[in-house]
Nucleic acid binder design. Structure first.
Lengths: 210, 210
DNA sequence: TTCGTTAACTTTACACTGTTAATTTACTTA
DNA sequence: TAAGTAAATTAACAGTGTAAAGTTAACGAA
């Protein structure tokens, strides 16, 4: 093994250690309550080391999320095998809501925080590959259902339909994450709401016979 | 005028000045990019004066939002006169989306930020009065539509149905506010999406004959 | 009128934050 | 062995929200 390779391996090891330490804290605390210094301390490094590896605090959090979103991708891959595109949409919605509630801080950072899109050079997300990108997967499934004539005639635009469906799922999750503990809002169990939401949205978008 | 009254009036004047200065900055910048010191400076006071009046930074921002949400309430009051509850729901959805897009930072703070519910003593929002609270208004309208037999039989729970409808609207708005400038997501115009979303959601929830 | 009280505001200070710059340390290579 | 390089460190910067202490002015009672 060359010296350069060894250096790179060591660098990857440190990077992994920082991500692990960061994840341990980020699982239980949201983005803005996890301080770089705290992560660095638990990892056994100093704060600027994180910046050296990830460029910024957001870079670190994004790296953590990027890794853990593999779990969502894995579920998508299983769902991709479902033959009927409408069934697939249903399963997709359930998986999306489940994932968000299991990883609230990840979800919050990825879909509810306003940050410039991460540097594609450092974190390449293939937006055109449905296997890797959640929205692309949704859009492709919608397009398939449109192509096979399942949607109502006014639903010809796959992006528009996908965005309407995504809005429902995201809204349900986001409200629960931000307002779920508001005692004045008697939230119904999210599972029940998700079921009604998915059923109603699809019924409203699909042709009557479905 | 008694001295005490004069003092209270002066206090209200300062309070209004702080709110005005805060609003001017908060219109164009989100919550976390508006610093107390900056607001205080433009209002001609020192930072702790804001804390004296509003208890915390969030207290100030909430006071600003609380005032400006009067515009939303005014629209709701007009909509309240619409006879048909389903028509009312439609109008409600449109008004909600419009308001959010016209006041993105207010919306972000009120519905997309995680803060403990504001002290009810200082900011009393009557949750039971539909004229004042957006969710209460939505819920009451849903309940009326349920009572008059417009919704499908599985839609008996006004809270559940209201939360499903709210999810759609909130999700659409929230996605546009956080991801609206992501070049990889070709967002369709929000007006068009809102129309399809509202149509589809209601069609999916209402009885077929509607 | 004068004195003590009170309220409102300011200055100062604290404990943080993410980030940058300068510096040290260790290792590789010529 | 000497030079060079990469990666860590410490120190420092410019902010933040907020708490405590100090200042000033107006008020009510003697």
């Amino acid at each position: 093994m060359s010296a350069k390779e060894r250096r790179e391996q060591e660098r990857a090891r440190v990077r992994a250690a920082l991500i692990d330490a960061g994840r341990a804290m980020f699982i239980s605390q949201p983005y803005d309550e996890v301080s770089l210094r705290a992560v660095a301390r638990t990892a056994g490094y100093s704060a600027p080391t994180i910046l050296n590896h990830f460029g910024s605090k957001e870079g670190l959090i994004f790296a953590i999320c990027e890794q853990d979103f593999g779990a969502l991708r894995a579920r998508f891959e299983r769902i991709a095998k479902v033959a009927d595109p409408v069934d697939r949409l249903r399963r997709l919605g359930e998986a999306y809501v489940d994932f968000a509630m299991e990883n609230p801080h990840h979800y919050r950072f990825m879909f509810m925080s306003n940050h410039p899109a991460p540097d594609p050079a450092q974190f390449p997300i293939d937006r055109s590959n449905p296997d890797l990108d959640a929205y692309a997967f949704l859009r492709a499934t919608v397009a398939e259902a449109i192509a096979t004539g399942r949607f109502r005639p006014e639903c010809k635009d796959a992006d528009l339909v996908a965005q309407v469906i995504w809005s429902g799922g995201h809204g349900l999750v986001a409200l629960h994450l931000t307002k779920g503990d508001d005692p004045a809002l008697t939230f119904r169990p999210i599972k029940a709401a998700a079921r009604l939401l998915i059923d109603a949205t699809l019924r409203g978008l699909l042709k009557a016979e479905d």
